[in-house]
Every structure is written in C-alpha cells, then in structure tokens.
Amino acid sequence: MHLVPADRADRRTIDGHRVCDAIAAIGDAGRVRAWADRFALLADPKRLALLLALHRTGPLAVSDLAVATGMNDPAVSQALRLLRAAGAVTGEKEGRVVRYRVVDPELAALLAHCTADD
C-alpha cells in the first residue's frame, strides 16, 4: 500500500517500500504529539521523580512528596499543577489533604517499564 502523502509524492525515494513502512510506523500525527508531550513531562528530573514516587507508592500528599523528592512544597505544587493540567495525575481531597496519583494509563505503563529492573 502506497502511503506517501500527495504533497510529498513528487520527491525521490531510494527505498520506497521502507518509506511507506516508516510512514505507517509514525502513524497519526496527534498520537505522535501526545507521546512527545508525555516525554516532555518526563524530561524534567523533578517531575520524573514525582511521577516515579506516585507510580510506586500510590497516592501521596504534597508535603510527603516534598520530603520524598527533596523539593520544597511550592515547587511540588507547581509541578503537580503542570502534571494535572496535562492529564498525568489527579488529586483526591480527603478533608484538608489532597493526595495525588498517576491517572494516565500509557504514562503509568511507561513508568512501570522504566522501573522494571529495580
């Protein structure tokens, strides 16, 4: 099946069948963007530390995450705001305490893969 888009069909290829396979492997541009956004979240060591802690332990409050990661409470809160806006985590309020947990299943699977050797 020929997958080269019409706007690129006039360009010369060396291995045309591999080009089509590469286009198929890349897939939907929206899905590529979603994964790029996930990787951007993981690119910051502090956000990654928060996600790993939440993934491994389950719901934790901001102050507990601050102690676990060595960050201060405002920095944890700011990172969690970003992670929450991206749909990676959610907070569940219990009285005055909000405990956060990872809710993006694809991100959770990636975190599980990253920590599988531990």
Rank of each mutant, 00 (worst) to 15 (best):
residue 2 H to M: 03
residue 2 H to N: 13
residue 4 V to I: 15
residue 5 P to E: 02
residue 5 P to A: 05
residue 5 P to M: 04
residue 6 A to N: 00
residue 8 R to G: 00
residue 10 D to E: 14
residue 12 R to E: 07
residue 13 T to F: 14
residue 13 T to N: 11
residue 14 I to Q: 09
residue 15 D to H: 13
residue 16 G to D: 10
residue 18 R to S: 12
residue 18 R to W: 08
residue 18 R to P: 01
residue 21 D to H: 06
residue 21 D to G: 08
residue 21 D to M: 10
residue 22 A to F: 12
residue 23 I to W: 12
residue 23 I to F: 13
residue 29 A to D: 03
residue 32 V to C: 02
residue 33 R to W: 02
residue 33 R to C: 01
residue 33 R to G: 00
residue 33 R to Q: 07
residue 37 D to Y: 01
residue 43 A to I: 02
residue 44 D to F: 05
residue 44 D to S: 13
residue 44 D to Q: 11
residue 44 D to L: 09
residue 46 K to P: 00
residue 46 K to L: 12
residue 47 R to V: 09
residue 48 L to I: 03
residue 49 A to V: 05
residue 49 A to Y: 07
residue 51 L to R: 00
residue 51 L to Q: 01
residue 51 L to E: 01
residue 54 L to A: 09
residue 54 L to D: 08
residue 54 L to S: 08
residue 54 L to F: 09
residue 55 H to D: 11
residue 55 H to Q: 12
residue 55 H to C: 05
residue 56 R to A: 13
residue 60 L to W: 04
residue 62 V to G: 01
residue 63 S to V: 11
residue 65 L to N: 03
residue 66 A to S: 11
residue 67 V to A: 10
residue 70 G to W: 09
residue 71 M to C: 14
residue 72 N to H: 07
residue 73 D to I: 11
residue 74 P to D: 05
residue 74 P to R: 13
residue 76 V to Y: 07
residue 76 V to R: 02
residue 76 V to F: 05
residue 76 V to L: 06
residue 77 S to P: 02
residue 77 S to K: 13
residue 77 S to V: 07
residue 78 Q to I: 11
residue 79 A to Y: 12
residue 79 A to Q: 12
residue 80 L to Y: 08
residue 81 R to D: 15
residue 83 L to A: 01
residue 84 R to D: 15
residue 84 R to P: 08
residue 84 R to Q: 15
residue 85 A to W: 12
residue 86 A to H: 10
residue 87 G to P: 08
residue 88 A to Q: 03
residue 88 A to R: 06
residue 89 V to D: 01
residue 90 T to Q: 15
residue 91 G to I: 08
residue 92 E to K: 11
residue 93 K to T: 06
residue 94 E to D: 09
residue 95 G to W: 07
residue 95 G to R: 06
residue 95 G to A: 07
residue 96 R to F: 13
residue 96 R to N: 14
residue 97 V to K: 15
residue 97 V to N: 13
residue 98 V to D: 04
residue 99 R to V: 06
residue 100 Y to T: 05
residue 101 R to I: 06
residue 101 R to M: 10
residue 103 V to W: 04
residue 104 D to R: 02
residue 104 D to G: 07
residue 105 P to W: 06
residue 105 P to I: 02
residue 105 P to T: 07
residue 107 L to W: 03
